[in-house]
Design a protein around this nucleic acid. Structure first.
Ligand SMILES: Nc1ccn([C@H]2C[C@H](O)[C@@H](COP(=O)(O)OP(=O)(O)OP(=O)(O)O)O2)c(=O)n1
Ligand SMILES: [Mg+2]
Ligand SMILES: [Mg+2]
Length: 886
DNA sequence: ATCCTCCCCTAC
DNA sequence: TAAGGTAGGGGAGGAT
């Protein structure tokens, strides 16, 4: 069975995976009422959630996320069905939209039509709509289906392994849903003007003469969400220990439990536990499969229901949100908040068929903790007066931000006996800060007193980063396989960036590498097992969504690890994009957005690609003098040109800063960007420290470290200093390290500006620019900074002279001066470049912590261990998928 | 001091 | 078999 292992990136994999997929989707125990996996539907979470009829008066949200097209004559007739579906939160389509319309509604199935149907289409009887309304909730499709809903596997043959993985990953699903629901809330809030609150009518009898002013936040969370959804169509399992998982209830199954019923929890079962572990303490556990599409629909129903009362919402996750209940009470003049919540919860249950619990408190923190107390199927209001005592009665691990690690830190530093918040109350703020850090310490200090930062009920929509992670089933046999997987992930990342209208400037790669002593295959099929992470990031020449640019740079980053990565030991790959811009090129302030953006020298390079699309050569684009361009010009690339042209009339050093560190950052957003960083011929390729700065100011020695050579700078700057620096600056240009070039100039600028002779500094910087131009002219026949100095002829002579025979400054560290244009010399000097990064506390034989799993509350006593040593408790009893420590 | 970068940690 | 993703907070330590 070894060869059947899921291998992402192995071309032989799809067939194998597909067969299993087929089995999985129709596994015994899945009654087919809902598909286990919306192989296509759940990839389109956003589409389901997009069907937002903000402003349309509706009476319920039963059909939220559902759309219908009515085919032929039906009873009730199509216009009636249209009214019913829209009034109850669904969508009516006048045409069947493949991939968008959930159901075709038809009284019967014309035989001639069946042949033309795609497997993914679903035809359902009109009674389905009316019966759902009678029951007040979405029913299982069951016998209402005339076609479809069962056999959706055929498409899987074409689904790439990465997509297969995401289509089955619950964690991917809930992440995606959370993001989409935030957008859903943000959209509703943006459409506030046309939004209505039909369910407020239900609160009429609560309205009184007093307008309350008490601040109350409400937190709502579905009880064992995935299980609740599953039990809607399995009423016989209500009251039994039930878990949602890919595995069947098998005492040897390594499938993770996503959610379990409260009956199962009473036996010690918890989310993230392996089924085989759960079976040990709960032998009667019933395992049921996922219903991804149903979670999407139900989540939207939950949010839509709340939106019938208020838009002061804050989305948290697929089954959980906060809202400003105090504001609602005030607006409606209602003094009994719990009565409102009873009505809302009843509506949620009526619409979704699932139970929600609610916590009320003076702030979001207390509300959240109250929810935990309210569960299952309850609601609790903790008033401001009760809050401190209430929180202090709870275990510290209940506090948000106190997870596995921080809990251990607290017990290590403040006493192993510390388990409840009350035991922390006596600790001073400085004490907690020194234990947990400045901000976390304060957070905890305030939390145990029932306090927290206020919550905004305006849904933020600005993402700061986008990432794609595949840490399951990664087994790569060679570089092409790696490249293929990177390619898939890059394409996925591109799609996600474009979906949110963003391009990114900073790309990071994270690999999970099998620990040296770990078995090739862990006990759990496809799992990464004990691993350590490797990370590397690079700045892209400009904001991009281009899959090729992402792929090529990711491969470069991976190739840059030292020692080299053993491809077959890679167990996980993640690509992370930060420093986001809109596709139109506007920086996103919240994304750590470049306050000082860098205009890359890419702006000035014309590349030539070879037949493989790789950059074979480049020339410098001369910067011609231009009259200032109309500043209303919106084209980003022209805007940069404008900056430079505008600077013509200004002093030279100012113009330099425009080039290396422009004041207004306006990156270009070309339709297609260059496929690669410019690379030199192999002989000139600099060593692997490609992303490190070649120039480091050394303040203590009043010197510049240029390419590993320490050059003391005197004040005022002497010609000798300049020539030494310029000589080594040549390495910069040769190695095309554009970011370092910027740093060199700015570092130098900073340094020299501190000197006693600013005029000398300006002159020195100007001279550096002349040097770059001179060098580029020599090497490529054009210049970077332009030549508007009538004196420059003399400058060239100067450089020819001083650089060809650089003076031996008093420095022993300055090497023998080679001929400037001798390739051997280039190689020699390049080799002398040190790696300036101070070898970050590299855990050298890197066994290291990876994602310690949250410790279960009940089972498994904590293993007392040395500081920072972490055991993966969930895997503790398994044969080999253990460990981790650092 | 304050910022920046590279991580770890947390939550669902 | 099994599908261990993802965004954001923030700490540590170096750069500015
Ligand atoms: N480690 C986790 C945590 C959660 N989930 C999914 C399944 C849950 O049903 C859903 C909601 O998470 P909750 O933390 O709200 O847990 P439940 O709703 O299952 O239980 P509770 O009643 O405690 O809220 O997210 C998951 O797949 N894996
Ligand atoms: Mg829940
Ligand atoms: Mg939840």
């Amino acid at each position: 069975m070894e060869e059947a292992l899921t291998v992402l990136g192995d071309p032989s994999a799809p067939t194998v995976v597909q067969r299993r997929t087929h089995d999985l989707g129709l596994r015994v125990g899945d009654d087919g009422n809902f598909r286990s996996f919306g192989d296509y539907m759940h990839a389109k979470v956003s589409k389901l959630l997009d069907q937002c009829h903000s402003g349309v008066p509706t009476t319920s949200a039963i059909f939220a996320g559902i759309s219908i097209y009515v085919d032929g004559h039906t009873d009730p007739p199509s216009h009636e069905l249209r009214r019913l579906i829209i009034e109850n939160g669904g969508e009516y389509h006048h045409y069947y939209l493949h991939g968008r319309t959930t159901y075709q509604v038809a009284a019967n199935l014309a035989k001639t039509k069946v042949e033309r149907l795609r497997a993914s289409e679903k035809i359902i009887k009109p009674e389905y709509i009316t019966d759902c309304l009678k029951k007040g909730r979405l029913l299982p499709e069951g016998d209402y289906l005339l076609f479809g809903g069962k056999e959706n596997a055929p498409n899987n043959a074409n689904v790439a392994p990465v997509q297969q993985f995401f289509n089955r990953s619950r964690l991917h699903l809930i992440s995606t849903m959370a993001t989409e629901l935030k957008r859903f809330v943000a959209t509703m809030q943006a459409n506030e003007a046309v939004h209505e609150f039909p369910s407020r009518a239900k609160l009429g009898h609560l309205v009184g003469p007093v307008i309350p002013t008490t601040p109350i936040i409400c937190h709502i969370d579905m009880d064992c969400f995935f299980v609740s959804v599953a039990l809607r169509s399995r009423p016989e399992l209500i009251g039994k220990p039930v878990a949602v998982t890919h595995s069947s209830a098998n005492s040897n199954a390594y499938g993770e439990i996503a959610s379990c019923s409260y009956e199962a929890r009473a036996h010690g079962v918890y989310a993230r536990q392996f089924v085989r572990e759960a079976m040990k303490t709960c032998p009667d556990l019933v395992c049921v499969p996922y219903e991804f599409d149903a979670y999407v629909a139900t989540a939207k129903q939950l949010y839509s229901t709340l939106a019938r009362y208020t838009l002061a919402l804050k989305a948290i996750s697929c089954d959980e949100l906060y809202f400003d209940l105090g504001a609602l009470c005030a607006e409606l003049s209602i003094t009994d908040p719990l009565a409102i919540i009873s009505i809302i919860r009843a509506e949620i249950t009526a619409v979704t068929g699932c139970v929600a619990s609610a916590g009320l408190g003076p702030n979001w923190l207390v509300a959240r903790l109250a929810t935990k107390k309210a569960k299952p199927a309850g609601q609790v209001y903790v008033t401001a007066e009760e809050a401190p005592e209430f929180v202090q009665s709870l275990p510290i691990s209940d506090l948000p931000s106190v997870g596995w690690s921080n809990c251990e830190t607290i017990q290590e530093q403040l006493g192993a006996n510390v388990t409840t918040c009350r035991q922390l109350v006596e600790r001073s703020l400085p004490e907690l800060r020194s234990t947990l850090g400045f901000a976390l310490g304060e957070k905890v200090y305030r939390a145990i007193r029932g306090q927290c930062d206020p919550m905004e009920f305006v849904q933020s929509v600005d993402q700061k980063s986008v990432s794609v992670n595949v840490n399951f089933g990664v087994r790569l046999k060679d570089k092409p396989a790696l490249e293929e997987l990177i390619s898939s992930i890059s394409t996925e990342l591109k799609g996600r960036l474009e979906q949110i209208d963003r391009a990114g400037m900073l790309l990071s790669v994270k690999l999970l590498i099998r620990q040296p002593d770990a078995p090739i295959e862990p006990a759990k099929y496809g799992a990464h097992g004990p691993v350590y992470p490797l990370r590397k990031s690079c700045k892209l020449p400009r904001p991009t969504t281009d899959a090729d640019v992402i792929r090529i740079n990711a491969m470069r980053l991976i190739g840059g690890f030292q020692p080299a990565v053993v491809i077959s030991d890679i167990r996980g790959i993640a690509l992370h994009m930060t420093k986001l811009f809109t596709l139109a090129g506007q920086p996103i302030a919240s994304s750590g957005g470049p306050k000082d953006g860098t205009t890359s020298l890419w702006q000035f390079i014309q590349t030539k690609t070879n037949k493989d699309g790789q950059i074979a050569d480049f020339t410098w684009k001369p910067i011609t003098k231009k009259k200032p361009i109309d500043s209303s010009n919106k084209s980003p690339s022209k805007a940069v040109q404008t900056n430079i042209a505008d600077a013509d009339s200004e002093d030279f050093s100012l113009r330099l800063s425009e080039v290396v560190n422009p004041i207004s950052h306006r990156p270009t957003a070309p339709k297609r960007v260059l496929g690669n960083l410019p690379s030199l011929p192999p002989a000139l390729t600099p060593p692997s420290n490609q992303f490190s700065s070649i120039c480091i100011p050394d303040r203590r020695n009043k010197a510049l470290n240029v390419a590993g050579v320490l050059i003391p700078l005197q004040s005022p700057i002497l010609d000798a200093d300049i020539s030494a620096v310029l000589f080594h600056l040549r390495e910069y240009v040769l190695s095309l390290q554009l970011r370092p070039l910027k740093h060199l100039i700015s570092d130098w600028e900073r340094h020299t500006h501190r000197s006693s002779d600013p005029a000398a500094s300006t002159a020195a910087i100007a001279r550096a620019c002349r040097f770059v131009d001179w060098l580029c002219l020599k090497l490529h026949g054009s210049v970077v900074f332009g030549d508007d100095d009538p004196d420059s002829g003399g400058e060239v002579d100067f450089f020819e002279k001083v650089c060809a025979t650089p003076k031996k400054t008093t420095q022993k560290t300055v090497p023998e001066s080679p001929d400037l244009f001798c390739d051997d010399a280039v190689a020699e000097v390049a080799v002398s470049i040190e790696s300036p990064k101070k070898a970050r506390k590299r855990r050298n034989p890197p066994p290291q912590l990876f994602q310690p799993q949250k410790k279960p509350k009940r089972p498994i006593p904590k293993k007392s261990s040395a500081k920072r040593r972490v055991i993966d408790v969930i895997n503790l009893s398994s044969d080999d998928d253990v460990i981790i420590l650092d």
